[in-house]
Amino acid sequence: MQLKCVAIDDEPLALELIKNYVLKFPALQMVQTFEDAVSGAEYIGRHTVDLLFLDINMPDITGIDLARGLENPPMIIFTTAYKNFAFEGFELEAIDYLLKPIDVKRFGKAIEKALDYHKYKNAIAGNQDDESLYVYSEYRMVKINLRDIEYIESMEDYIKIHLQFSKTILTLMPLKRVLEKLPADKFQRIHRSYIVPVGKIISMQNRRVKLSTIELPISDSYIDFARRWMGK
């Protein structure tokens, strides 16, 4: 199955470049391109589109405003010559953010993310097991293998995902929301500030969970889990 793609950019040369890049990926099909943002938005509203390449600086409406106005937005890869819109792309949960002139290798990395995320969403929709989590960090989507998560820590509006063999990932998301994305049989909230992978708990004692690298507190609200784990 191919991803149906649309590109919107007021620069004809930019559209031609994206069309040529898309042809290099058999998993993609460019179904339409638009130099006019309004016409592009109308098309997306009437047709199934999987992936949108969207310029940000356009004369009639910005790509940011267009994306915000879509009722059922497809996956979006923003394309722009300016770096200062990266945070807006982050807020809209864009797959990636490509700076012009777009290098084909960098384009390929963005497509890999889109294909991975499409596969992930289909697995979730089909209730299939998936061993990955996708979050937005540093203005782009990041794939995290569940087996690499040591624990997850709340930082008010943000969370820190502590990984065993990699750097900590910071993302704008409440702890409750990330818990909903995780398999309920593999991850457990033990405190208002912490989620742990159940399979990595080494021991529990004095209302504390011992993992390989840290000990974390168990709050009163989650003491029943501790009792079940200890078989009491």
Rank of each mutant, 00 (worst) to 15 (best):
S166Y: 10
S166T: 10
P73Q: 01
L175C: 10
I195L: 05
E16I: 05
S166Q: 11
A94S: 08
Y120F: 12
Q32C: 12
M204C: 09
E156K: 15
R189Q: 01
P73R: 02
L15S: 14
V6T: 00
L146A: 03
K24Y: 09
I61F: 01
P74K: 08
L13I: 06
I102H: 07
A86T: 15
D65C: 10
M173V: 03
P59V: 12
E88A: 07
D148F: 09
V6S: 00
L179Q: 01
R68L: 05
F34H: 08
L54V: 00
D103Y: 04
I124C: 11
I76M: 03
I95W: 09
I190F: 09
E138G: 10
A7K: 06
F53Q: 07
R177A: 12
D103H: 01
I202K: 15
L170S: 05
D55H: 02
N20P: 00
I190M: 05
F87M: 13
L54N: 02
L17N: 04
I202P: 14
D65S: 14
T62I: 10
E11R: 13
N127Q: 06
F78D: 08
V31T: 01
F34P: 12
I44L: 13
V104F: 10
I169V: 08
A110L: 00
W229Q: 06
S166C: 09
I223G: 00
K210M: 08
K176T: 00
G45D: 13
L211H: 14
A67R: 15
Y158A: 04
H191F: 13
I95Q: 11
V196T: 04
Q2H: 13
E153Y: 04
T213E: 11
K19N: 03
L3R: 05
F165V: 06
D220Y: 02
I202M: 14
V142N: 05
K105Q: 11
I56Q: 03
A41C: 05
K167S: 12
K143M: 09
K4E: 15
G108R: 02
L23D: 15
R208A: 12
E93V: 00
I18E: 06
I56S: 08
I218M: 02
C5I: 00
K4Q: 15
I144K: 10
G69S: 15
I56P: 08
I111A: 08
S154P: 14
C5F: 00
K186A: 12
F165G: 06
V104A: 13
N20L: 06
P74M: 13
R68N: 09
E180C: 01
V142D: 10
V209M: 14
E150V: 07
I144L: 10
I195Y: 00
R140G: 08
A110E: 03
E88V: 03
L52A: 03
L182R: 01
G45S: 13
N72E: 11
K181A: 04
I56G: 04
A123M: 15
A110T: 08
K210V: 04
C5D: 02
C5Q: 04
S219F: 10
F85M: 10
F225H: 07
A114P: 11
P26S: 07
E153L: 11
V198F: 00
L13M: 04
R106K: 07
V49R: 11
I111G: 01
S221Q: 15
L211K: 12
G45Q: 12
A110W: 01
